[in-house]
Write a protein that binds this DNA or RNA. Structure first.
Lengths: 372, 372
DNA sequence: CGGATTTGTTTATTGGTTGAATTATTTGGC
DNA sequence: GCCAAATAATTCAACCAATAAACAAATCCG
């Protein structure tokens, strides 16, 4: 148990239990009743009722008239997340497109906007201005649906510091771009690495194992490490740079200055040129990850997903050979289920996840002008 | 915020705040007063007083008569951890010795017992029986000091499953040894990998950065990954197997069946034979770790500690070359401060850490026979 | 010696969960 | 068709723990 550094007051108890109830509903396949929530959380029915009342009043839950249950006794009222409560604005900027989407609390993509254009030619401020326009359209669409955006998150193909400063995004040609200063949406904005956010997108859609590695193969190679349902960002937010893990110490020179980086053997071009070489290199690097972190599941996304069948066996062979515990428990390899939208979806999920994880803060917000 | 799966009742609030107060005292360089604790935690003085009363009654804190303070106003009563409260029993079994120690709540090693003998010749049951004898001596010594052992933890050089089952300890010749069944001390027993526990030992003594990698070079090479002050054990508890990270894909064959594992280039023999080669190989593997996990500190322990000066530059060179973010923030390399006792110390620290992190459970224990 | 100052305790209040009793709404048996 | 059993949800008194504010204790300083 890691006792965090802050005191707990009674209101924290309520905040915690509100989150507990909301997440129980969210993670439930069916529509649980108050009594079912009480049974599965250990809270009293009375307490659950009180909490649910708050969540309904705050437009996070709805009671469904048609009760999906049978048996003897008073029928239960099914509870579910509201599709017309708060929503998340997911944004992505990448080499050849801009994208925005609105996801409601239930996780459904309600609106999706994409602009194809080469972003490498533009100064960051212009690219972000264009993205701001897209975001405004998304926001108008959300307003029309009665969805109040709780925040926005932006996926960037680069290293992002904790405050949203993009230190370097090589394929965009960006360096030290202060995104929050250039992209003011009037919403709380989170900026994160695209592989990180794509990993979170996979987490939410999969629903299965909460601990896995997501590897995205584009021009560069990035990875998102999800441990116990949470993204591991590292000390400075620069985790997951698997593209620069050394595979062949004296191998091909990399643009980063080192030799034999994975990126040179399993980047987009390399995969196209020689899938077997790419698979072997990936297998070597992934074995290192599994030996270090004891992950049971690896998800291949981005450009790897469509090539999955061509890569699988080659990767598997290396994993079986090089992972110390491969004999005790095999490593599962899967293709990502989300397509190219993964990062944008993950970004939106981060926003709605923040509401689902801490509904009390959302309910307590100084209610902003509804649908300006 | 990760809302965990359990409900929070009022008693949890108290449990949390008890831990908060106790840890505030533990992490304080001086002897804080109730008022100082109140200021640094945000709890009311009245609340702190009530909590401190409980902790004193439960023999976790003591009030120090000589108050180390000056100024105007009523003098404060200094608070400190009691040296005669609960203690931890740290155990270690390794290739050529058995060891046990008693550490009190303040972190001081009160007693230490070591038996040198080759454990590879013995069946596991016999080795554990001998360890049990050592543990009994340690317990008697603790009793004589008025220390009530809160539990025991055992460091083993091998893969340990969550329930204490040692799946394989190659250098002991163990396979599937059910340690808790063979070593009944009448105390809660934790079994963990030696590198993991040594890492925790370093964490407690260092007190500095809570995120680092501890690498221990013995016959095999193990690593403990400490993230935000907590050991990362991986999905099945088998994290940190850095010894089998591939360094040279087509290199020397390893006893694990793969080729080019770090262990073949930086194990005990390899370091002795060619320190430069070992340093380069370590540097390559450590670069992979840093690229993946964004760690800022690496601690070299075990057999590496005495060789630190010979290894440092070679490792550093590879890190500078191969870590993508080396230019943005350098990686700090350090030798471990704890000697060969690190794992045993870490084991004892785990026990006293469990009391410090959750004093409420300790206070609520069905008081066992004192000093049987 | 008396005011200022800081520490620690006492007391009434508040917020939030609990448990038991109560009300509500269905199924099923006679 | 009506009553018993069963299940769902709400109401209400009790309790637990933190809070705020007043109060008591112990020292320094002028």
């Amino acid at each position: 148990m890691n006792a965090s550094r802050s005191p707990v007051r009674q209101s924290s108890v309520r905040a915690h239990n509100l989150a507990l109830v909301l997440q129980t509903v969210a993670n439930s396949a069916d529509r649980p009743s108050r009594a079912a929530i009480s049974a599965s959380t250990g809270l009293t029915r009375a307490t659950v009722s009180a909490l649910v009342d708050d969540l309904i009043a705050g437009r996070l839950l709805t009671e469904l008239d048609p009760t999906p249950r049978t048996g003897a006794g008073r029928p239960a009222a099914g509870l579910a997340l509201t599709p017309d409560g708060p929503g998340g604005l997911g944004l992505e900027i990448n080499v050849d497109y801009l994208a925005a989407c609105v996801v409601d609390l239930t996780g459904v993509v309600r609106h999706r906007f994409v602009t194809r254009a080469d972003q490498r030619l533009l100064p960051p401020a212009e690219a972000l201005a264009a993205l701001g326009g897209l975001a405004a359209r998304a926001r108008a669409a959300a307003d029309a649906d009665g969805i109040e955006l709780a925040g926005a998150a932006l996926a960037v193909p680069g290293l992002v510091a904790a405050d949203g400063l993009v230190r370097v995004a090589p394929n965009l040609g960006w360096q030290d771009v202060d995104v929050p200063a250039l992209l003011n949406l009037g919403l709380p904005l989170t900026v994160d690495n695209e592989a990180n956010l794509a990993a979170l997108g996979e987490l939410r859609t999969d629903g299965g194992t909460p601990t896995f590695l997501y590897v995205s193969g584009e021009i560069g190679i990035g990875a998102g490490i999800v441990l116990d349902g949470e993204l591991y960002r590292g000390g400075r937010g620069w985790s997951g740079e698997i593209g620069h893990v050394t595979v062949y110490p004296d191998g091909r020179p990399c643009r980063c200055g080192a030799n034999g980086c994975l990126e040179q053997y399993a980047g987009q071009e390399a995969v196209a040129a020689d899938p077997d070489l790419a698979a072997a290199a990936l297998g070597i690097a992934l074995s290192a990850v599994v030996n270090l972190l004891d992950l049971g599941v690896i998800v291949l996304g981005g450009g790897y997903a469509p090539e999955f069948d061509r890569l699988r066996d080659g990767i598997d062979a290396e994993l079986r050979r090089r992972v110390l515990t491969a004999g005790l428990a095999p490593v599962a390899l899967r293709a990502a289920t989300l397509g190219p939208d993964a990062a944008m979806r993950g970004a939106a999920d981060v926003v709605i996840g923040s509401v689902r994880d801490d509904p009390a803060s959302w309910l307590a917000r100084s209610r902003p002008a509804q649908a300006v």
